[in-house]
Each structure stands twice: as C-alpha cells, then as structure tokens.
Design a protein around this nucleic acid. Structure first.
Lengths: 189, 189
DNA sequence: AAATTCATGTAATAAGTTACATGATTCC
DNA sequence: GGAATCATGTAACTTATTACATGAATTT
C-alpha cells in the first residue's frame, strides 16, 4: 500500500499528527494521490502496530490533545527499502473507455458529443492545473530544500504532461470517429 | 460504478451468465478494466435487485446449472442514459509518483535506477501489448460488427498511446535527474 | 492419473469514501 | 453571532482482491 509509505516519508521530514499529515498531503501530493482523514488515522494505527512509528500524546489546554508520530529505526529502514524498490506500473483503469468500447449502438453524433465533453473537461483541468502550479511550489523554500523542490516540480509536471496527452488522444479520436463504419440495423435481436 | 454498466452493455450484446461475462471481459475490456468473478456475481445480484436485469435458471445435466441474465426494459434505458452521459475524468492516482516525490534523500544514482527500472517495465508492457493487439481483435467479425470492431481498436490504441507517453516522460525525467540540486547534509535532524 | 473447464457462490480481507460526533477557540 | 480551525476518532458503506469450496466432464 502506498498511503502507509507516504506517511513514513512525510514523518521522515518531521514528526506530525494525523491532522498535520492530512494538511501536508493536501498541499503536496494531492495532485496525484488523494486521501482522507479517516484513512490516515487507520494507517497510523497500522503503522504503529507494525512498529514503524511511535506516537506520543501531547496534552493541550483549550484545544484537543495531539498525538505526534515519529519514525522508529525499523520504520526508517522500511522507508529506505521502499523508496529504492521499483513499483510495477499500475494497469490502465479508465472507466470512460468502457463507454467508448460499448458505443457501437450510439450514433456518430453521440460519440462525438461524448469526446467533446471530455475534451472540455480536460482543458478545464489543465487550466486550473497550470495556474495552481505557479503558486503550489513555494519559491522561498529553506536552503537545502532545493532538491525536494525540484522533485516536487517533476511530479507536478507529470500531471500537466498527462492531461496534455489525454487531450491529444482525444483530438485524434475525434477524427477517427468521423470515419467510423455505420451502425448495422441487424444489431438488435 | 462502471462494472455494473459494463455488465449491462455486455448483456445488450447477448444474454450471458456470470461465468460468460468473466470470459468476455477477459478477452475484450481487460486492457483497461480488470475485474474478478466474485465481483461480477455480486454486481449481478445488485443489478437484479435494481430491476435492470432478470436471471433465468437453466438446469443442466452433468454440469453445473447456468443462470442466464438478460436486460429488462429499464435496464436498456439505464444503459442508454449512461452511454451518453460524459464521465468526469478520474483524478490522476500514481503511487510511484509518491516515490519520486519523496526521493530527496536518495542519491541521483538511486533515482536514476528507479526511473530506468520503470522504463524497462513499460517497454515490456508495450511489447506484449503490441503483439497482442494484432491477435486480439478478431479480423473475421460477423458482418455488421465493423463498427464495434473499430471502437475496440480505439480502446486498444489508447493503451499503446498511454504507455508511449509514459516512456517519453520517463526519458525526459531521466535527463532532468542529471541536473538535480545536490542533497543537503543538514536534511536529517 | 492429473489438470483444466464448467459454473456457481461464500468468506475474509484490503482499500477507500462519506458522514457523524465532540468541544473549545479563533477569525470574520 | 456564525463559520472556520484544531484534533481526535467511530461507523457505515463501497469497491476490489484473494482464497476457498463443490463436483461432474473433458482434455492432456
């Protein structure tokens, strides 16, 4: 699982609570990996049982107590192992290709409408993505963080490159739909 | 959910059992959508409760009985509605970008090794993908299926285009890693 | 003789989302 | 005065995977 390792990696930056982690994920990896509060607290439990992190209760007045987690030695080792072990590429899983695959009974116009709607949505995402990217990576990172910053940019660029690819493919398919063989009358029994 | 609608669309082709559906998915949409037996049987139950399909028990001798499902009128309507409703693009969810994002403590060589391993794996997938594509789409589809066949090809091409994109991006990132800012000694507390 | 196909399903577990609950404090 | 922040969690549900069970018939 990746969430657990994202947590390990984050805690290696600095000790944090579940609440801190959620905020950190939201401003850092949320472009390619989203998660929820509940899931984070569950993962923290699992990680502690595994012995990779330890939690320390910080009692507070006026506001809820905090439970600050930090890496253990075995947690740091596990993180290092995971960070240098190539993950197998995740299989393509695109629900909307199911629509395309089964559209033989739709008219050309309906398929074109589907593709165009998708094109518009991807263009929207790209636009917000590109404006966000400017502000997302803090320009004034503390010294010694340039390396992390450069990697951060690389992951942001993946998102842009991916949606640009999607847009190109969308364009190409629009042309192909115009040369689609016609529907057969005999299709439906 | 998409599995249920993939089932609806398949049953519109012809009535089938859960077993048939699994085989059909394996040779058709498995390039971009995989599923399991158990999940299919569960989805069939749900679809029947929803009133979109009806099952008919076919008693057999010598081998297990079959439960053949077919679309109802409301099922056909739901299928049509779904097929013409644009799905919102799924957010990017790439576990391995987590690795890249948190690799600031790794050496350049380690990051390069990660990228190169990934490049090799993608190249492998592309190779098998391209040979499979030749044989996957039956060339001698019954007349009137040319339209379905053309759509099939489009979805197969998506897979190829996607992995080619991944490979390109991989290449570009390898160049960028060679210009990464160095690690800071002060990183670890 | 052993493996595979046919065909159903259950059980267990993992991964992930949504909604709810609490209660003081601080910001608008 | 109302909303948002801080900070924990539980509960219910959905989605998906893995493993197991059955038992005749067919293929290797």
């Amino acid at each position: 699982m990746s969430l657990t390792h994202a947590i390990l990696a984050s805690l290696d930056f600095q000790p944090m609570t579940g609440y801190d982690l959620k905020k950190f994920f939201d401003v850092s990896v949320s472009h390619f990996w989203t998660t929820t509060q509940s899931h984070i607290y569950k993962a923290l439990d699992d990680l502690e049982k595994e012995g990779w992190i330890t939690g320390e209760l910080i009692v507070q007045e006026g506001r809820p107590n905090r439970k600050v987690y930090r890496l253990t030695e075995s947690g740091r080792a596990e993180l290092r192992r995971w960070l240098t072990t190539p993950l197998p590429p995740a299989p393509v899983r695109e629900a909307w290709l199911i629509q395309l695959f089964f559209s033989h009974a739709s008219t050309d116009e309906e398929i074109i409408a589907l593709l165009e709607a998708r094109g518009r949505m991807i263009r929207d995402i790209l636009e917000t993505y590109e404006t966000q990217t400017q502000s997302a990576v803090p320009a004034d990172l503390p010294p010694g963080r340039e390396r992390a910053q450069a990697l951060w940019r690389m992951t942001l660029d993946y998102g842009i490159a991916f949606y640009e690819f999607e847009l190109e493919w969308n364009q190409r398919m629009l042309e192909r739909v115009r040369n689609l063989p016609p529907q057969s009358d005999s299709h439906h029994a």
